[in-house]
Design a protein around this nucleic acid. Sequence first.
RNA 1: GCGCCCGUAGCUCAACGGAUAGAGCACUUGACUACGGAUCAAGAGGUUGAAAGUUCGAAUCUUUCCGGGCGCACCA
Length: 552
Amino acid sequence: MTPDALAACVRDALAGLVSAGTLSIDVPAEVHIERPKSREHGDYATNIALALAKQAGVAPRVIAEQLAVELAKTDGIASAEVAGPGFINITLDTAAQGEVARRIIEAGEMFGHGDALAGRSVNVEFISANPTGPLHLGHTRWAAVGDALARVLTAAGATVAKEFYINDRGVQMDKFGASVMAAAHGQPVPEDGYQGGYILDLAAEIVAEQPDLLALPADEQMPAFREAAYARQLAQQQHVLALFRTVFDVWYSERSLHESNAVEHGFEKLREHGHVYEMDGAVWLRTTDFDDDKDRVLIKADGEYTYFASDTAYYVDKRERGFDLCIYLLGADHHGYVNRLRAVAACAGDDMDDNVEVLIGQLVKITRAGEEVKLSKRAGTIVTLEELVEEVGVDAARYSLIRYPVDSPLTIDLEVIKLRTNDNPVFTVQYAHARVSSVLRNAADIGIDWRALGFDPGLLVHERENELLGALAEFPRIVAGAAELREPHRIARYLEALASTYHRFYDACRVLPRGDEEQSGEHLARLWLCASTRQVIANGLGLLGVSAPERM
RNA sequence: GCGCCCGUAGCUCAACGGAUAGAGCACUUGACUACGGAUCAAGAGGUUGAAAGUUCGAAUCUUUCCGGGCGCACCA
């Protein structure tokens, strides 16, 4: 019996009361089933009687009493009791609870997957940095969270594409080119250029491979250096992200948007919907029709398209490529874009609540043993994605960035996430996986083929077994919730609780026969419980892009 | 000035309007003839920034303050 199945039982019981005339309500589509914090409150609890009291015009406890009687008759439910103001505390039959282990093993890697977002085609755009330098910490939070979000949405049934928009057009690119060119000539980079040491490295690489660039006429030389440096810097970003296990399905060049006339096309599309007008020699989009605080210019008085025009065209292009939900992950310094991006969707004739979502992530602060690491481009103390991975490893970096909700500012201590102790939650979770793997290895070594032998779920009667089964049964709901709320950190928090629950079980319940002890049904049932725990931890870590080691 | 986000244990942070606000670390005290002790058990630690409101019930929703972060281009 899973929480979802139990919710269906509660709905059936309500429908029964309604048709019998004892209750006068509309049977709700959703019944909230929760796992009580206190074990004294049974395996599951529901507040449905409290929620329905007003509509029914009856005291919540009265509804609860009637419903509890019905529920207690249901197969798989051992008891249903009314508590407090009208909660119903439900205890399952041991066997009904234990069946969860079988379902997990049968579903394998698919356990936790659902169909809540089936049929949705989702574009998740994140990072989208200029190709003018290395990816830094601000990008890194999204590299981890965006990738995990895409995995979670996929698990919820959506078709997902991860997309990186390359800002490869405009004055920043020219400054980048000019900086590299200056460095190649051994000159100081321009005042408003890019200062980092990587510029010198890029210049040296390019000169070594293409020395003839230095001899080009002045007006051809900067573009030549710009293009050579662009290619190398983009490749470097792609390489680093691949190491970080964040692999994009689409790298979309802003230039290509202009070269394919998509900007004109997007502009025409907006014009068709009637939100475009001219004023002071410029062409504007009336985004104030849809909650933006001011209208935005599409074409400047000098006839040039604005960057905003690219954004609108890019949105139209995504929709025409078949995505019905465009998710943008932006840093807090871009929160002013939220309303205008939503307005763009509305101006293009879309539903700004359904076709577009903008998630804002707060900034990341780095400390080392409690001391803040100042991030300064000029002083060269920027922490790059590559450096973070070199220092703490991919697993610790990804996990540490994912386990916090993105709407609060985050402080990460480099010393802490390197620790291989409980200070560092990623190791707690990975250790639990390694520990359970070890038990299963030992079982195989002494010749127990648990999978072939099967098990009796009714034997899992220990309190710690019950806790663990309950925690495992939660996983599909956790995944669905993380997808619906776009909050992958829920997976991490769940895994930490599951790891802790497993350790408590392990401490109290001997799994394998000792010495010359006979192998019993209890041993087998516990092995199935272990195997299903390993499966769920592995599935959860997989959603975060973190490895699940068999040994550590 | 206008707008968005945040404020929870000493620290880093959880908690889709639910029951006694929870974890980890740090602190105190226990459990090792160990299926991986990288573990477990127990204790202490809180006026959820403040005040009012909404309701059976508020850290969560509303309003007003206080404090912190970020943003308000015919830049990209």
